[in-house]
Design a protein around this nucleic acid. Structure first.
Lengths: 228, 228
DNA sequence: TAGAATATGATAGTATTACTATTATATTTG
DNA sequence: CAAATATAATAGTAATACTATCATATTCTA
């Protein structure tokens, strides 16, 4: 996949930035080091001033790329979901069997990211950590409805929709394909978090993955006779 | 239940406060109005200064009850889960049939709270909103491991454990009772959030409740023959 | 290649936040 | 009634989340 990705750019809503960070080396450094710094100190402690220090640049220069750190987080997580979508489509496109297709999709959406490969300045392992630990904060705000209208969550919504369609292909009579799709994505992240911080709240551990749990959950739910 | 609850106090970890807010009228006003204010303006914008203004008291007085707003959020959400646990135990205690018991439990944990009844100074409807919109922020922090050791999440953990046991009673062979229990609690909140802000990401709406979705999910998963 | 345009850096300034400390004034209790 | 305790008022600090201005560096283009 590596080589293919060199020709691919993940398209992010232009309202999320003031100046495209992909358009300059400073921009790419902002992305690269913001991922590192947010992963390291957490989103609450992260500031543009600290980031400036880290990259040997100035707070004011970073503000020329992003209005505030919330927009930066939306940019980073949009990128992550765009990257996920790319992998999903790429890996499932040629699979005809709906069961197999859905299984592959669940695997891609819930697996642990282990290698940083595709894009030079983006560390996907750290970005995955950020999504696990910070993504909810990007929508659990009072501004969520306005920002949703602005299209800030569009990639994530498209992903859920794609997953939902795959679920319906496996079981056209299942009544909650969209909810189940969002459960896979959201609870996938959550099980990874629990594994790390609340092992007593999950059966996932070094032997059992969130992927296994969710795959089992989904396939036991679909094509089942119990109703209501 | 109303009258019974008048004699019940929900026990919160004493490290979460400097002075027990239940011990004075100012303390109870802090609780009452912090629920209103957090619900109204969101946790990010909420400050002790604004709360002080709201209750005609002083910022410095509030700091004598709670170290900071994060501890206050932990207090409020602990109270909420304690109240849930009380309802859960109370309502399921006498049910012998494991299926029926689990069904009741899922209902209690995922239903929409419609009435503010039990405790004079705590509005359970607003508190439920706060849990939906803010609970994740209480553990998605860099301090989570330390705070977990301090016992700040103990009530929630007990709840998951109780639910997990009920799941195992329905299907002793099911391999992921704890993960499923945490999925019910966490995704229950999430489906309520989606219903409100991202209707396209859920099948829940004014006709279909998160309770129905999750009940269907759980009972189709348990006592099933598909394995691995 | 000069001159204009643009990008970046440095510095300063503001309102707000998240507190801590001190002192004064109520209120409760013994 | 005095002493203890709770609350209120005020002030102060360091950090945050910016905005504004001006200087300097880089690059683009005629």
């Amino acid at each position: 996949m590596d080589r293919l990705l060199q020709g691919v750019q993940i398209r992010i809503n232009e309202k999320l930035f003031l100046k495209d960070p992909e358009s300059s080396s400073l921009g790419r450094r902002i992305i690269e080091f913001s991922i590192q710094l947010i992963d390291e100190i957490g989103f609450e402690s992260f500031t543009f001033k600290k980031l400036g220090k880290e990259i040997g640049s100035n707070e004011s220069s970073i503000y020329r790329y992003f209005e505030n750190k919330h927009k930066l987080l939306l940019y980073l997580t949009s990128w992550y979901w765009g990257w996920m979508e790319y992998q999903l489509v790429f890996a499932t496109n040629s699979i005809r069997n709906p069961q197999e297709k859905l299984m592959k999709a669940i695997f891609i959406m819930t697996k642990t990211i282990k290698e940083d490969s595709a894009f030079s300045h983006i560390n996907e392992v750290l970005l995955n950590n950020i999504v696990i630990n910070e993504y909810s904060k990007s929508y659990l705000t009072k501004e969520v409805d306005v920002e949703n209208k602005e299209g800030y969550y569009i990639i994530y919504k498209r992903l859920v929709s794609r997953l939902g369609e795959m679920i319906s292909e496996v079981d056209p009579n299942y009544k909650y394909p969209t909810s189940l799709a969002s459960t896979i994505l959201e609870n996938g992240l959550h099980q990874h978090f629990l594994k790390e911080h609340f092992p007593s709240l999950t059966d996932c551990n070094s032997k059992v993955t969130p992927t296994q749990y969710l795959t089992h959950l989904v396939f036991n739910t679909l094509n089942n006779t119990i109703d209501e």
